[in-house]
Design a protein around this nucleic acid. Structure first.
Length: 527
DNA sequence: GGTTACGGT
């Protein structure tokens, strides 16, 4: 069960708009049960809003950074039940931002009265280590160091600006390179150690001095002006010599979200995050139908419905029997990528990354055919088309696959077992044979497939991740079995599909041993 | 299988 259905609804204090609904993550400064049906909280996320009172005083979060939050009725009860108190980080869903009589904004979570849309777990206490709290804690840290509150609006604006700048330099689509030609890497930001990155497939490699994070940091330093607080200032951005305007085939196909990634690296004190920069093309994908890149799950219990392309699922959730909870849609799919050295990587694309990649939320594509058309149009730009990667193209075009730039995030897992799969770590409420029709043979590799929360939390140790997988694997054994199949919707013409490719495990195709990483496509978007 | 909110300081 996810903590949050849709990150798009999240707002910081500074981003609040009057009369709009949002989700909010904040720290409790003060909590009081006012009456039987009302709890009053003062919260902060260390951002400020003009329509808030200036606060001063010892021990208080100063400035216009604290907001009154009222939880009504059942939400008040829930807060009581959870023993909410000062110092906790809360995730609150579906708050309404109102202007009060003093013309200050405040947040209300109103009781459910049959109108609107009921959220699952609208009041949640978040672990301080939770990735959802990461940004807030960073802002808090800045604040406690006397650096004032931070405004994510500004940061996001900077990110967008940097991203534009970065992508205009590096994001190109090039013809298939000649393997072993060093010139195929002239697009790189740094002439330095990048070729090594594509050799990374075992934990050994990343423990070497030129580990990915460092390589990455070198790269991003050349692109991004970093605030001195968080890292020593760096030299100004290089001139955009990398972009090759003389090539008529050069297209701005994808935008690299270098800044976001750089932020993640910077925020990760333990250097746990590993990234791999790829210039790669899609040679396969799963599930078979793009329609099934989106799946429905019960918003009450998180139960995952079968593929959209299957028969209409029951009205009531088979798991919790809730007929009113409704469903939400999320992306979950896998791309088989091949880089310039013909190494292939199975890369999961979780909901959040997919939204970034294609620029739109997942939807019920059975009903929203125009949305499906948009999705297909977008994905076609990177060669993902129904009928297989590059399906529907002429044979000659297969020889010119569509290369695009991306960073993939690597999540370490144990390497010994051939049955470890993140897909099996998520709750499966009915058997695979029921959930997936036999003819959709590759769906099972995805399981519930939404970005596992453990992976969002970079502070989670790989061993924990693994043990959770193992713990919850008991009812997914046939899925594990199925996941031994390679990504089946591949372009066989590449001749690179002989690997024991296994679900979510990143693997170099020419190696017998499974690699040590799960990989997630992140930080790129199709333009 | 698709949407909205008052109330008390």
């Amino acid at each position: 069960m996810d903590r949050i259905e849709n990150l798009d609804r999240l707002r910081t204090v500074s981003q609040l708009e009057v009369n709009k609904f949002c989700d909010f993550i904040g720290e409790v400064c003060y909590y009081k049960l006012d009456s039987g049906n009302r709890a009053t909280l003062v919260m902060t996320d260390y951002t400020e809003h003009d329509s808030l009172p200036i606060v001063e005083g010892e021990g208080r979060v100063g400035g216009k950074a604290t907001i009154l939050v009222t939880l009504w009725d059942e939400h008040c009860e829930e807060a009581q039940r959870l023993n909410v108190g000062a110092g906790m980080f809360l995730l609150l869903k579906n708050l309404c931002c109102k202007l009060n009589k003093s013309q200050y904004i405040e947040l209300n979570m109103n009781g459910f009265r049959g109108k609107g849309y009921q959220r699952s777990q609208p009041v949640q206490i978040l672990d301080p280590k939770d990735a959802l709290v990461r940004d807030l804690r960073l802002r808090k840290s800045r604040y406690l160091h006397g650096l004032g509150t931070d405004t994510p609006g500004t940061i996001y604006a900077q990110i967008a600006a940097r991203s534009m700048r970065a992508s205009s330099i590096v994001a190109t689509a090039t013809p298939a390179p000649i393997v072993s030609s060093s010139s195929s890497r002239t697009r790189d930001i740094s002439p330095g150690p990048l070729p090594e990155t594509t050799t990374v497939s075992t934990s050994k490699t990343v423990q070497e001095p030129q580990d990915l994070t460092h390589i990455l940091k070198k790269e991003t330093e050349s692109l991004v002006k970093v605030t001195p607080v968080l890292r020593p200032s760096t030299s100004p951005s290089r001139p955009s010599t990398r972009h090759n305007p003389s090539s008529s085939r050069a297209l701005l196909l994808t935008g690299l979200l270098t800044s976001r990634m750089e932020l993640e690296c910077r925020n990760d004190a333990s250097d746990d995050i590993q990234y791999l920069r790829l210039h790669a093309c899609v040679v396969g994908f799963e599930p078979e139908h793009i329609m099934d890149f989106s799946f429905a799950s019960c918003s009450n219990c998180g139960y995952r419905y079968g593929p959209l392309s299957d028969d209409k699922p029951p009205n009531k959730c088979p798991s919790c029997r809730s007929g009113s909870g409704g469903v939400i849609f999320k992306y979950s799919f896998m791309l088989k990528l091949m880089d310039e050295f013909q190494q292939t990587f199975n890369v999961y694309v979780d909901n959040e990354s997919a939204i970034t990649l294609v620029g739109a939320d997942a939807a019920n594509y059975i009903k929203k055919s125009e949305r499906l058309a948009e999705l297909k149009q977008k994905l076609a730009r990177i060669g993902v088309m129904d009928g297989g990667a590059f399906g529907g193209r002429t044979k000659s075009s297969l020889e010119s696959p569509i290369y695009f730039d991306m960073y993939i995030k690597l999540v370490k897992v144990a390497s010994q077992s051939t049955t470890i799969s993140l897909s099996s770590s998520l709750p499966i409420k009915r058997s695979i044979s029921q959930e997936y029709a036999p003819n959709t043979q590759c769906n099972s590799e995805f399981g519930d497939g939404d970005f596992p929360l453990e992976c969002l939390d970079y502070s989670t140790q790989p061993s924990q991740l693994l043990s959770q997988s193992q713990k919850r694997r008991t009812d997914g054994s046939d899925m594990v079995e199925n996941s031994k199949r390679p990504c089946s919707n591949s372009n066989r013409a590449t001749g690179n599909n002989h690997s024991r490719t296994q679900g979510s495990v990143l693997q170099r195709v020419n190696e017998k041993a499974l690699a040590d990483f799960e990989a997630f496509l992140v930080h790129t978007m199709i333009k």
